[in-house]
Design a binder for these strands. Structure first.
Lengths: 150, 150
DNA sequence: TCACCAAGTGAGAAGCGTTCTCACTTGGTG
DNA sequence: CACCAAGTGAGAACGCTTCTCACTTGGTGA
């Protein structure tokens, strides 16, 4: 399912993740770590992973990088774990949503075939929908297949 | 649109909001204030409103009441405002979602006609969906009508 | 009606995720 | 190479939320 987030064989570049912001050495490391993330992650988890790849990068820098990536639309908050924001890589540019696997914790991109359905449903009640967010919970393909045998 | 959240002419009772938890005088006051809320609210806003109705009720009590109501499924977190959790009354027992009006800030219940669509869309990609959350953004009926003239 | 006790309360301290500050460093441009 | 806006690290500060503790209250059984 990496194709979901890494259709380009080289994956998104640091500049893709940060938009037009300057990409320092530290941010390049953070971008690489984020790209290697296979599940949703908190800022602290990212900081640990980053410190593992390149000790010395501060927590503030991680938070600033997250902020830059969110601004660039490359990362988004998909939930909350123990009071910390749960983040996920969000590379596909087309409108999509996230499936949070309740077994392995991964967050996968899922196409959004609902746009019209959602809007029309609410419009029927008289509201005007301009945007929407959907978070799905369940089992991803891998965990679903693993479950069959167990 | 009050019918959305108050179909019973008397509205939900405190015990409805708290499930099986004990309903003290303070919790009854908090429940009443929550029922009168017309928009999504933060814990602090609720505390202010509660203090207005019955001075002396502590912030910790408000947080504990919120926690109890969330556990009972009567209140849910629908977002985040300046770092504080944004809460909304959630009385209808049938599966529904929330429309956050970007103009007046109210959070309205909207029927969920998507259940099958959402599940089948993700299922098509091989996942197994067990639940989902949808948050819609746009203009509620009132604001939409107000907009036409302006 | 009374006694008992689990559950709830108020006040404030503590915890903890996140943001800010400040002096220093670095990337990119001319 | 010089310049300077942008980024960095360390830690303090901030603010939301939870916890602690002594006290009160609601509900149950006798």
């Amino acid at each position: 399912m990496d194709a979901d987030h890494q259709r380009d064989p080289n994956g998104p570049t640091p500049s893709t993740l940060y938009g037009t912001a300057r990409v320092s050495v530290q941010r390049a490391v953070i971008a690489r770590v984020v790209r290697e993330m296979r599940t949703a992650f908190t800022a602290e988890e990212l900081h640990l992973a980053v410190a593992d790849a390149s000790p010395g990068i501060g927590l503030a820098t991680v938070y600033r990088a997250i902020s830059a990536m969110q601004e660039a639309g490359a990362v988004m908050t998909v939930g909350d774990r123990d009071g910390s924001a749960l983040l996920a890589l969000c590379v596909r540019n087309d409108h999509h949503h996230h499936l949070v696997c309740t077994r392995c914790g991964r967050v996968l991109g899922v196409e959004c075939p609902l746009g019209d359905a959602v809007s029309s449903a609410a419009t029927r009640e008289g509201h005007l929908i301009t945007s929407h967010e959907v978070v799905l919970y369940g089992l991803c393909v891998d965990c679903r297949e693993g479950t069959r045998g167990a």
